[in-house]
Design a protein around this nucleic acid. Sequence first.
DNA 1: GATGCGCTTTAAATGC
DNA 2: GCATTTAAAGCGCATC
Lengths: 84, 84, 84, 84
Amino acid sequence: MAGQGDNSGGLATERLKAFIERVERLTEEKDAMTADIREIFSEAKSTGFDVKIMRMIIKLRAMDENDRKEQAALLDMYKQALDL
Amino acid sequence: MAGQGDNSGGLATERLKAFIERVERLTEEKDAMTADIREIFSEAKSTGFDVKIMRMIIKLRAMDENDRKEQAALLDMYKQALDL
Amino acid sequence: MAGQGDNSGGLATERLKAFIERVERLTEEKDAMTADIREIFSEAKSTGFDVKIMRMIIKLRAMDENDRKEQAALLDMYKQALDL
Amino acid sequence: MAGQGDNSGGLATERLKAFIERVERLTEEKDAMTADIREIFSEAKSTGFDVKIMRMIIKLRAMDENDRKEQAALLDMYKQALDL
DNA sequence: GATGCGCTTTAAATGC
DNA sequence: GCATTTAAAGCGCATC
């Protein structure tokens, strides 16, 4: 493709097919992970936890300690300035 | 939480922590898949393939045969109607 | 379309075209708003404000008072439970 | 903020507030446009048109003529290569 | 100092 | 109407 000049049965076709199939394979696995995660949240929800808040927590935990504190401080400043 | 009435060291806390950690674990794996996929596209791109088109192809392959044909037919009709 | 049985110059074509053009018109205006918003943030940034935090503030202000407080309380609980 | 050294009632606060309110105003208008667009699609749908296809058409019309043709040609090549 | 690009995040749209 | 999935927007980087 893209200037390689063969459009059927050629080498490029094989390579393209290989790339596509590798992506499809990985996408399947990724989708399985997503399903697993969804299931956990679903279970947590039925246990009484708030999924949205859990997601916030996970995001906070993923952040660097310093960044998190800095951001929190800044947010507080802005909130005070605007009486929130 | 959410009415269970304990907020430190309690059972709910342990369960919450467990849920969170399981999600974090799976998210890590999922992110790794995403990175792998990105890498394949990147390699494909540097081989001369068009990544955007590849994504379209993958979407088409994921579709049901009938749906795909029906959609293509409909799109053609609309295109003709609007001189595209 | 979709069973109306005419595919060129017919009534349905005119209606389709009208719908499409109305959407396109509104989309243009919407894009203009988006550009204006971007510009304001850009100006704010060059004044020394933190755009990301500003976005958070706007989101908070858009929330219902009660929802916001409830969410904040819940988030605090979860944070304490997980030593954040 | 961000080094201006005043955090309540100061000049920066006024500027921040002004920026925020301008964004909020524009966002409201933008949301109204979005609602209008949704309404048109809804009407089109109840007239018998396929909304998803309409969106594809709009996207195609928004594209540059040359880009559209090039993309279509490329997509065809890839489809043939993969027997789609 | 601006522009393109890739990644992340946020918003919209489809389907249940 | 809600949840999932998909598309767009924003942000940061790296480059020129």
